[in-house]
Design a protein around this nucleic acid. Sequence first.
DNA 1: AATCTAGTTTCGCTGGGCGAAACATGCAAT
DNA 2: ATTGCATGTTTCGCCCAGCGAAACTAGATT
Lengths: 296, 296
Amino acid sequence: MTKTGRPQRGDGADAPPSPKRERKASRSAMPLIFDDDDLSEELSADRKFNWSLARGLEILRAFSGGNASLGNGELAEITKLPKPTISRLTYTLKQLGYLQLNARSGKFEPTPAILALGYPVMSTMKIRMIARDYLQQLANEVGLTVAIGGRDRLGMIYVDASHPSTMMTLRLDVGSRVDIATSAMGRSFMHGISAPERELLLGVIEQRAGDDWPTLRDAIQRSFDEIDRRGFCIVDGEFQEDIRGVGVPLVASDGGAVLALNAAGPRFAATLETLETVVGPRLVHLSRSVAPMLNR
Amino acid sequence: MTKTGRPQRGDGADAPPSPKRERKASRSAMPLIFDDDDLSEELSADRKFNWSLARGLEILRAFSGGNASLGNGELAEITKLPKPTISRLTYTLKQLGYLQLNARSGKFEPTPAILALGYPVMSTMKIRMIARDYLQQLANEVGLTVAIGGRDRLGMIYVDASHPSTMMTLRLDVGSRVDIATSAMGRSFMHGISAPERELLLGVIEQRAGDDWPTLRDAIQRSFDEIDRRGFCIVDGEFQEDIRGVGVPLVASDGGAVLALNAAGPRFAATLETLETVVGPRLVHLSRSVAPMLNR
DNA sequence: AATCTAGTTTCGCTGGGCGAAACATGCAAT
DNA sequence: ATTGCATGTTTCGCCCAGCGAAACTAGATT
């Protein structure tokens, strides 16, 4: 969130000059990606874009940063919005039942009501009904978490996840977020989308990567090659130290939705060989079986 | 959503007089409950309340009405907002990645990104980590869906749910919504909250119930009595024909969060006697075990 | 009492958001 | 082609909802 706002109250006699505000011209209206703190740019001068809504949602997102509860001050910090604005938006969200004020700490915390927003997503995804049992079965067999994910900005969100009955660590559940660039799931997803979309995404990833880009680009390219060759890719320790996983694109046969499958876990849970000879092929098979059912 | 808006463009010569607009005085700023289409009232003149945000979120909620995808027209219908407003808000939500336009149907559908909003709720709820295995175990043993839920307006949202490995029907999952007044879970929740809050809620439920209120009130009272007597309540076929369930309040020992547990399924899955002698007591026990862990 | 920190409220301004109406588009029936 | 209907977008000018600087309030700490 940046959108600076408006100058105000230049005020009486010798008030300090309010900081200069720039207004940018909009360029495009592509899918739009942006990560973290950066909406601005594209939308600054878009007459159709409603900033109040965007800001409010950005507040809800702020809680994904690992903090269970946040005060107005912290929210102002995170979102870069002025305090009064935060105050009013949190007030609104509280009235709507999406946030509640923890009397003890004086901070806000998200409520179950927010889950209701996500329900339509989960319930209308046929795959979940269909694939659920396959996921669970595969998870148990290979001892890894098996999940379906879709894109959110520069991350992949777990839409469904099955854990093997044994695994206690690495419980990434529905709604979890993994990086799109360094995870097997993310790369599989990127492989599944159209070329222009992919280029757009990679462009943003490049920007974010900075100096690491050459390395990252090569790694991504290798994953793409793997998928071309045998349908799946393996990522070992790039997304997170000591985590390895397999990814497979999941593309609706009518070209509609694009998702991705993965199977992942701590290194000790699976050798690279197992991933290559057993898990990968199984995932590919799973993907082929459910892809035709994705069409609504 | 009602908040009528502003008159405009009374316009040239003999234009039809734009409809009169009333502006209401605000009354209170209580927790606020409202269901379905009715925010208005309380907030109309609240300087702190941001309507754009509320409207935008209302659009996301509209998809909970069972429709997987909705066009701007339908959304206008449902939310009672004028078309241009809908147009802009859906545009904004699309830009933010929460909605995507299905090219085939020309309608919007919610995306996985929305799940990311709910993740903080799920991840910070310690109970989920702790109770998860108990839930699953109980679910398998009694052959019913066992869930934890919190309130959302006049419904209860499943925060966690475990299905018995056998059950294929009635898969109410995380994010599912059941009525607060006619479900065992809902009534258990109401039993758990403070008296003033409860009265407030019952007031709204009364309004919504209309002529059915006397019957409903008695049924709710009976459930309250059951909970007083033995810790749980049983509801058979009130929430939904052929569904029966047991509910238990789940109150943090520090009085913070209030949730509820339930175990439910189709009638054939459990006799009333089983619910009374086995499932109920087990749920009560579960509630007692995890309640102390609710404090953050 | 003085200083910090955290949040809320005031206040005046103004441009962001608004809806009526006009326009565009798509599809069917005539 | 034309008309009609249904759906969605864009224009346009208005104006008040929302904004942020600054003042204020409330606690906590020194």
